[in-house]
């Protein structure tokens, strides 16, 4: 009796799973052919993000597409150090390091920083040379919300490498009136 009633249930569950899977596959495949570029869909993401995080803004995806076109951006080589929690979004210390021998044969040519949910996602762009000795930079940035910050390095061979971090902001930049 029990087995008779449970059998069709399993059947419908399987079909539901199949449909879910099919939808997931189609939405995963969409960015490759849709308006999202290959570059934007393959960028490294930090492991721990809050569940209610809205995800990257359209502005960020457009910025990535306009800078890197369809070129692949690999995960690795770039270490982005940001505080996990920052009280004041007006000044958040950021330091970024790229693994590279920094000699004439192999060096980091460009390093770009993006804050994906800022009103203007571009934060800074650096040009390095073999004279830099080591590819490490630190600065202070503004964050308008808790979000993922991404650093993308372009090596002299043309390959792109990304590292990212999530920072929670207690007091966002941009909201306060001038005093």
């Amino acid at each position: 009796m029990n087995s008779n009633t449970s059998h069709p249930q399993i059947h419908t569950l399987n079909r539901r799973h199949f449909l879910k899977g099919a939808i997931a596959i189609s939405t995963m495949a969409l960015p490759l052919f849709g308006r999202d570029s290959l570059a934007a869909s393959s960028i490294a993401r930090p492991k721990e993000i809050p569940k209610d995080y809205p995800g990257p803004s359209e502005r960020f995806l457009n910025a990535i597409t306009s800078v890197y076109q369809q070129e692949p951006i690999s995960d690795g080589k770039v270490t982005l150090n940001m505080p996990v929690l920052a009280e004041n979004g007006n000044s958040v210390l950021l330091s970024v390091h790229v693994e590279s021998p920094m000699n004439k044969q192999q060096y980091v040519k460009r390093l770009r920083l993006f804050a994906e949910n800022n009103p203007l996602p571009e934060v800074a762009a650096f040009q390095l040379t073999p004279h830099s000795g080591t590819a490490q930079i630190s600065t202070r940035i503004r964050l308008s919300a808790s979000q993922i910050i991404t650093a993308i390095a372009t090596l002299n061979d043309g390959s792109h490498w990304a590292g990212s971090a999530f920072t929670t902001i207690t007091l966002p930049a941009c909201v306060e009136a001038f005093v």
Binding site: N90, E122, A124, F126, S132, I141
Partner: peptide, 29 residues
């Protein structure tokens, strides 16, 4: 610039905090 060569360049956007602070490295030759 170091010895008349540009060794490091940065482009700033509004997301750089007030009183821009920047550290970087160069190889002394």
């Amino acid at each position: 610039t170091y010895l008349d060569n540009v060794v490091f360049e940065a482009e700033f956007f509004p997301a750089i905090a007030a009183n821009p602070y920047l550290t970087f490295f160069i190889k002394a030759t």
